[in-house]
Amino acid sequence: MSATPISLRLEPGQKVTLQPVSWEGFEEILADLGERRSSRIAYADGILEIMAPLPEHERSKVLLADLVKTLLKVQKRAWEPLGSTTFKRQDMIAGIEPDDCFYIQNYKVVIGKNRLDLTVDPPPDLALEIDLTSKTELDAYEALAVPELWIYKRNKLTINVLQQGKYVESQTSPTFPGIAVMEIIPQFMQRAKEVGVSQTLAEFEIFILQALSG
Score class of each variant (00 low, 15 high):
R154T: 09
N106Q: 11
Y43W: 03
R191G: 06
N114H: 14
F188C: 03
K69C: 09
A44D: 02
E194L: 14
L157A: 04
E137L: 09
L212I: 15
W150H: 02
L30S: 13
W150Q: 00
L149P: 04
I184N: 07
R36T: 12
K69H: 09
G214L: 11
D139W: 08
K76S: 15
A44V: 05
L126K: 07
L54C: 09
A44L: 05
A180G: 06
V16G: 00
W150D: 00
F102N: 04
V197F: 04
E80G: 06
W23L: 06
I179R: 03
E58L: 08
L71F: 01
N106I: 03
P12K: 06
N160Q: 08
R115C: 08
D100L: 04
Q90H: 10
P81R: 15
N106K: 09
D117T: 08
V68L: 08
V109I: 14
F26N: 08
L8K: 10
E129F: 10
N160S: 07
P12V: 04
A31N: 10
E142K: 14
V16P: 00
T158R: 07
Q14V: 01
L71Y: 08
G112N: 05
G46W: 01
T4K: 13
R9A: 12
G46M: 03
G46T: 06
K69Y: 09
M189T: 10
F204V: 07
I179A: 08
R59V: 07
T158L: 02
T175S: 03
A52M: 15
M92F: 12
V195T: 11
S2L: 11
G83T: 08
T17W: 01
D91I: 11
Q90R: 15
Y43A: 07
R115S: 12
Q190S: 15
K135A: 13
F207R: 03
F204I: 06
K15R: 14
P98L: 09
Y141F: 13
V62N: 13
A211W: 07
N155Q: 14
G165P: 03
I159F: 01
S2F: 00
S170D: 03
L132F: 05
L144Y: 08
G214F: 10
S173Q: 03
P20R: 05
E35A: 14
M51I: 14
R9W: 06
T119Y: 02
L132W: 04
R40L: 08
L157V: 00
M182A: 14
I47P: 02
Q105I: 06
I96K: 04
I130D: 01
P174G: 01
V21T: 07
H57G: 02
L118W: 03
R40E: 04
D99I: 03
Q90E: 14
M182Y: 02
R40N: 10
A52R: 04
